[in-house]
């Protein structure tokens, strides 16, 4: 549950999206850059802090360690947050499109 009811930052949004598949930190950075066509680049500091607070909120979990790199994965709670965010974004998008299209007609 997104208890704060706030919009997700782009960083958090892309991190959660990337973690639908289990992934380590560097993978998340690359995935984010790829998905956003290089527009969003997570700094290591941002990502490190974000992963810690997402773990804390229970939106992602850490998988048992294999080697030194830590893998993360989204939790059910995290998925829920992501779906809520998608609803919110579709509302924004729909209202924006409708308003601007009506005006153009």
């Amino acid at each position: 549950m997104n208890t704060t009811n706030n919009a997700l930052t782009e960083a958090v949004y892309y991190i959660l999206l990337a973690l639908v598949d289990p992934m380590h930190g560097y993978g998340i950075m690359q995935q984010t850059a790829t998905l956003s066509k290089g527009r969003v680049r997570l700094s290591a500091g941002t990502l490190y802090g974000a992963l810690a607070s997402l773990l804390d909120k229970g939106w992602i979990e850490q998988l048992p360690e294999e080697g030194r790199k830590k893998d993360y994965r989204i939790t059910l709670a995290g998925r829920e947050v992501l779906e809520q965010e998608l609803l919110r974004l579709s509302e924004l998008l729909e209202n924006g499109r409708n308003t601007l299209n009506n005006q153009n007609e």
């Binding site: 680049r41 997570l42 941002t46």
Partner: peptide, 22 residues
Amino acid sequence: LQKRASDGPFDTKNNTYAKLRQ
């Protein structure tokens, strides 16, 4: 911190959130 320039920048240019965090 040191990074290879060819690996891309440390973060998005003019990322206000990242700057604020720092």
